[in-house]
């Protein structure tokens, strides 16, 4: 070890006359009190700065950020759910509309069919009536034609008889024609 000179400049037994360290300054007892004193003050100050100001603030910021993130994710989920709901509603509306269109079409078809049936029936009835009427008219015409044939035949027979120069009365001719017509 160096000689422990206590020079005028040396303020401590741990520093030699030239201002250099004697041994390890870490082991110098003279300085321990000073270091411990200031260290304790430093630690207390840092502790209060951290515990009172910095750490609560950072904790609050982190919590707030976490909250914001959670909220944003929840909002996004909400929007997604809404979009899905809207899509489902749209699909449902589409299906409903399609079904309704089908029922309307069916109804229209049924109505038309019913109308058609009624009209057909009416038409059939009219046709039948018309046919009956026509038949009657035809029968009448045939009857009258027969009667006319008789008249014409009698007239013709009278005329032919007159032409042949013979004379015969109408009653005789009519009876002859009738006899002929009856075959």
């Amino acid at each position: 070890m160096a000689t422990e000179t206590h020079g005028a400049e040396a303020a401590s037994t741990c520093v030699d006359a030239g201002g250099s360290a004697v041994g390890m300054p870490q082991l110098c007892g003279d300085w321990i009190g000073n270091q411990v004193f200031w260290l304790v003050i430093t630690l207390v100050v840092i502790y209060f700065v951290l515990a009172r100001i910095a750490l609560p603030r950072i904790a609050a910021v982190l919590a707030e950020r976490q909250g914001t993130i959670t909220n944003d994710i929840a909002a996004a989920e909400d929007l997604k759910r809404k979009a899905e709901e809207a899509e489902a509603a749209y699909d449902k509306a589409l299906a409903d509309a399609r079904a309704e269109a089908q029922t309307i079409a069916q109804k229209a078809r049924d109505d038309i069919k019913a109308d058609l049936d009624v009209a057909m029936e009416k038409a059939d009835a009219e046709i039948a009536a018309k046919a009956a009427e026509s038949e009657k008219a035809i029968a009448e015409i045939r009857d009258s034609a027969l009667a006319n044939v008789e008249v014409v035949a009698k007239d013709t027979a009278g005329a032919i008889v007159a032409a042949l120069g013979a004379s015969a009365d109408d009653a005789k001719i009519a009876a002859a024609v009738d006899a002929q017509l009856k075959g």
Binding site: C14, A21, M24, Q26, W31, N34, F37
Partner: peptide, 19 residues
Amino acid sequence: MDQFIVKPLFGHGEVGMFT
């Protein structure tokens, strides 16, 4: 080891507890 010497910031006195 000189870098580890504790010395007063002002003046050249002894290093007391509250220096």
